[in-house]
Structure formats: structure tokens, C-alpha cells
């Protein structure tokens, strides 16, 4: 199977082919091949240790792959570091928060991508006014209400933090948004919000990859479900053609 064009003639935004990953002794991914269609919300499910986080951390440039190929919009992609993934339009919200608790919301929003007034050899003066203004706007865009962009992230609730992470990913206009268990430790109300957010990605022309252990959450907001077990894809079906029971059975 080539990574070029899918059956219905549409080019996937991300294709991975025969991806392998070893962590010293552990064979965490055993030849994973998947296509993610444009503007589709895909639910990625699987037991603990199935390799979900490993797969997305390769797409996000956090870990190098050991074997296999990645295509982004049909072109072979070398994703060697997080910046490569970001430049390709892949934003990730990590299972273990990617925010620095002792830094303000505005500072966290722009870590590694700070707007600057002037720079010399890569080091420059921060444009703090712009960082504040843009964080306020980005946070409002994801329907989160925070009083000040100067509040420390460590003082936010889990849901608010997740909201800021989502706002950050959206602000940088990603094409693909990966959310690794974003509903963990959230209240029912906050969970509903995140699910609504995943649903709304389509309207904004963003492809979503949503990892969760909760089948109901996945069936509530995704178009397709991919199940992984022991480093392999064991099921890949549109939501309309499968059921929670069937997915449970293959895991």
C-alpha cells in the first residue's frame, strides 16, 4: 500500500507506514500503519502500555522513530524534534502537562515561540504586551474565562490548564491537533467542554487525534476509532460502523 492517495481519492493529512519503536528492550510499536484524513476526528484507544503515547510522541517529534515512514500531506516528513512537528502544523497536548507551573499563562503560551521586539543571534527582547494580548484572545477563543494572563499556571485547575494548552495549540493555527488523554482528572463539566472542543475542530479545518480510555468520550466526539493493543493497530473503523462493545472485544 502506498501513502499517496486513499481509496476515495482524498489525500490523507498524515500517513504513517510500518512504524517501529523500541525503548531499550521494549518493542513499543510493532509496525503501525495509519492514515489520518483531513478534518477528521480520530479516537485512539487501547489499554495501558498499548503504545498510544509512543505513536503520538513520534508524530510530535519528542521521540525518534526506529523504523518506518511518515508522510505529511503526501510528502515524506522528517520529524526529528518538536519544532519540526510544529512547523508541519502538528500541535500536541501531552498526557503529562506541557506547561511550566511557575510561569505565567502568557509566558507559557509562547514558550519556544516568543514574539520579540528585536533580536540578535536568536536572543531578543520579548514583546510582552503582545504576549499578553494574544494570550487573552487565544483563551477567549476556546471559551475559557481567565481573569489575567499573568496568573501562574500552577494556580489553575486541571481543566483550566488543559484549556490553556488547547488555546496555545489553536493559537499557532495547527492543521493537526493531538490530544493525549486530555480528559484525565477533569470534572464532568470540564470533560464535556473538552469533548465539545474536539467536536468543533472540524469546523475550524483541524484534524483531531483524541486519545482516551473512556469509550463514551470517544464515541461522543470522533468520526473514526482506532484501537491499539500491544503496539499494533487491531481495529480501525468509522464510528458509524462499530460499537463500544465491538471495540471492547478487540482490546
Amino acid at each position: 500500500m502506498s501513502a499517496g492517495v486513499a481509496a476515495n481519492g482524498e489525500q490523507p493529512i498524515i500517513s504513517v507506514r510500518n512504524l517501529h519503536k523500541w525503548y531499550s528492550g521494549v518493542h513499543a510499536l510493532k509496525g503501525v500503519s495509519l492514515d489520518f484524513k483531513r478534518n477528521e476526528a480520530v479516537g485512539l484507544v487501547g489499554d495501558n502500555g498499548a503504545g498510544k503515547s509512543t505513536l503520538i510522541s513520534i508524530l510530535a517529534g519528542l521521540h525518534p522513530k526506529d523504523e518506518g515512514e511518515i508522510f505529511v500531506e503526501g510528502r515524506p516528513a522528517e520529524i526529528n524534534k518538536p519544532r519540526d512537528a510544529m512547523n508541519l502544523g502538528i500541535e500536541t497536548i501531552y498526557q503529562y502537562n506541557s506547561m511550566v507551573p511557575n510561569m505565567s499563562i502568557a509566558r507559557n503560551m509562547f514558550i519556544g515561540r516568543e514574539p520579540m521586539k528585536a533580536a540578535f543571534m536568536g536572543v531578543g527582547l520579548l514583546d510582552e504586551a503582545r504576549m499578553r494580548a494574544e494570550s487573552v484572545a487565544a483563551i477567549a477563543n476556546v471559551d475559557l474565562h481567565l481573569r489575567s494572563p499573568d496568573a501562574l499556571v500552577g494556580e489553575l485547575s486541571g481543566g483550566q490548564r488543559q484549556g490553556v494548552a488547547i488555546a496555545r495549540a489553536m493559537h499557532f493555527k495547527s492543521k493537526v491537533m493531538i490530544l493525549d488523554e486530555p480528559t484525565n482528572h477533569l470534572s464532568v463539566k470540564e470533560t464535556t467542554k473538552v469533548i465539545g472542543f474536539v467536536k468543533s475542530l472540524k469546523e475550524q479545518n483541524v484534524t483531531g487525534i483524541f486519545i482516551s480510555h473512556n469509550m463514551h468520550h470517544v464515541f461522543a466526539c470522533c468520526d473514526r476509532v482506532v484501537a491499539m493493543a500491544l503496539g499494533k493497530v487491531v481495529l480501525d473503523k468509522p464510528i458509524s460502523e462499530t460499537s463500544i462493545e465491538e471495540v471492547h472485544d478487540v482490546l
Binding site: P82, R83, M86, Y96, M99, V100, N102, I111, G112
Partner: peptide
């Protein structure tokens, strides 16, 4: 500050 504050986050954000 990010590197000292929470290294995994700094790395994930590509610093």
C-alpha cells in the same frame, strides 16, 4: 526558567 521549572515541558515545546 522553563528548563529549570519543568524540563519535560521545555523539551516538548521544542526549547
Amino acid at each position: 526558567r522553563a528548563t529549570g521549572g519543568f524540563l519535560p515541558a521545555a523539551n516538548a515545546m521544542g526549547i
